[in-house]
Design a protein around this nucleic acid. Structure first.
Lengths: 108, 108
DNA sequence: TTAAAATATGAACATATACTAATATATACA
DNA sequence: TGTATATATTAGTATATGTTCATATTTTAA
């Protein structure tokens, strides 16, 4: 007796290309130590590009490249103040996953 | 007045190497379409290696490689039945994150 | 308009990653 | 023991990824 099914829950064995791409990109963003460190900084407050670079001892260009990556996925946003751009996180769901996983990893 | 702090919550601006490694590895596991498809299959039930390969139209060796990756991170486990190995998921936290993110991606 | 400060971009490089074909290993059973 | 089935492993290859240096762009202010 398993014919049709309501369409409000996924039922197929495989995922469609688009979902697959979005999901993998999202996790890929969190799969790099540098990006994790940057997002971890942004838990607290907004940071300028140079602020991040100094805090984490990274090159300005490295930070800028990774921020572009994160911004493309809308994981961070920024506001401008003069020539300075202040970045902050912009995806609660992703930040929660990150926090949970960090705590999970720390406490064991 | 912000001197010391109780040690039950993380306070430093940067993460230690070990945490960083574990967290990035975990997300890296979910950052590949093939591994996502495999784990997504395992939501339902256990699968043999060939079962996965046939269901997802992948080579046996591709599946075996990715299963080794997932098993090293203890994201899957297996039980043997004759020459057949039945794989199933083995980390509720990771599977929940995956499910949430898939639904998040599907419904938009 | 020129200079300075902050950030972004492009190219080059090294490393990591994923897939494949071929082969090895392991188990069950005649 | 020998064979068939299922899975694991190894080596090779192509592509993706992350960092760096050098340079370009943008904004502000003199």
């Amino acid at each position: 007796m398993e014919e049709k099914k309501a369409n409000n829950e996924i039922d197929t064995k495989d995922l469609d290309q688009e979902t697959l791409f979005v999901v993998s990109q999202t996790f890929k963003a969190l799969g790099d130590p540098t990006r994790i460190r940057i997002l971890n900084l942004l838990f607290q407050k907004e940071y300028s590009v140079n602020g991040i670079a100094e805090s984490l001892n990274l090159r300005q260009s490295t930070v800028s490249h990774q921020l572009r990556f994160l911004k493309n996925l809308r994981l961070v946003k920024y506001r401008r103040e003069g020539t300075t751009l202040y970045y902050s996180h912009d995806d609660e769901h992703v930040m929660n996953m990150l926090k949970e996983t960090i705590n999970h990893a720390c406490h064991h």
